[in-house]
């Protein structure tokens, strides 16, 4: 049994009177592909926002285990510090930097791993130049990884939708994460693109040793690539387990078929 990299204990998130997350606990183990599913409005994106510092959970703990083995509580941390710890994410509604080039978008991701400041930029001393060169190389390699190297100097807003989603993954990878959070990465993709994405996710896990937590509506993809599945409904975790267990769980079937809830 490998140790866990993300350990969420009973987090709640209230928006005014609405409880968007209600006592959600979840555990992602190292080098695992975990899926978070649930109907629209279940609170999946809110969950991502809570663990990446964009929202502060109303109560509960979010604990992460970076590679160095120390456990860190990230509630209330700023998003950039969470990213620095090694959690990187993509967004459901794509949030690239539209008027920057594809390569530059990935280069942004390296920001928190590099140091050169104003003086380095103006003087372009040896150190700054070396770092810049390393950033370009790393970013270019990441573009190759997601198959976008041909578009390196295109503006990000000119890429087709599916490629923008892949670019977001490359940008997240540039922050050197140990845990990758993907929010509906296959949304709006055709079957071929979805298949390629699936391959990419598996490759990231196998070759880069990443742990991956993804939100996805495409059940075929979820069932075929994930090691464990968590199901959210109305802000509650209603089921978790292997894909097979979850797909046979009557509560889940009920939630997905939209039957009346009887407590």
């Amino acid at each position: 049994m490998s140790e866990s990299v993300l350990n969420v204990n009973e987090i709640c998130k209230d928006f005014g009177g609405i409880r968007a997350l209600d006592d959600v606990s979840l555990n992602v183990r190292s080098k695992e592909i975990a899926a978070l599913i649930g109907p629209n409005g279940a609170g999946k994106t809110t969950f991502f926002n809570c663990i990446t510092g964009i929202y502060t959970p109303t109560s509960g703990d979010v604990l992460v285990n970076p590679k160095d083995g120390s456990e860190r509580r990230v509630n209330g941390m700023k998003p950039n510090h969470v990213t620095e710890l090694g959690m990187a994410r993509t967004f459901q509604n794509i949030r690239l930097f539209p008027s920057m080039t594809t390569l530059e978008n990935v280069m942004i991701g390296t920001h928190c791993r590099t140091k050169s400041g104003i003086w380095g930029a103006i003087s372009r001393n040896g150190k700054a130049r070396g770092e810049e060169q390393a950033i370009i190389e790393k970013s270019y390699h990441l573009l190759e990884l997601v198959g976008l190297e041909r578009y390196a100097n295109e503006l990000a807003c000119n890429l087709p939708y599916g490629k923008q989603r892949r670019l977001e993954i490359a940008r997240a990878m540039a922050t050197d994460p140990f845990l990758l959070l993907l929010d509906e990465p296959a949304a709006g993709m055709n079957p071929q693109e979805t298949y390629d994405l699936q391959e990419l996710v598996i490759k990231l896990r196998n070759e880069y040793g990443l742990s991956i937590l993804l939100i996805e509506h495409d059940m075929k993809m979820v069932m075929s690539i994930s090691d464990s599945v968590f199901v959210l409904d109305y802000g509650r975790l209603i089921a978790s387990g292997t894909p097979k267990e979850v797909s046979e769980n009557p509560t889940v079937i009920k939630a997905y078929l939209g039957e009346d809830e009887d407590d």
């Binding site: 990213t83 967004f91 690239l96 920057m100 928190c112």
Partner: peptide
């Protein structure tokens, strides 16, 4: 580049560290 990112999308910019 960080300035540009800040201009384009503040949330994504922070989420990228």
């Amino acid at each position: 580049r960080a300035w540009l990112a800040l201009r384009e999308d503040e949330i994504a910019c922070q989420a990228m560290g």
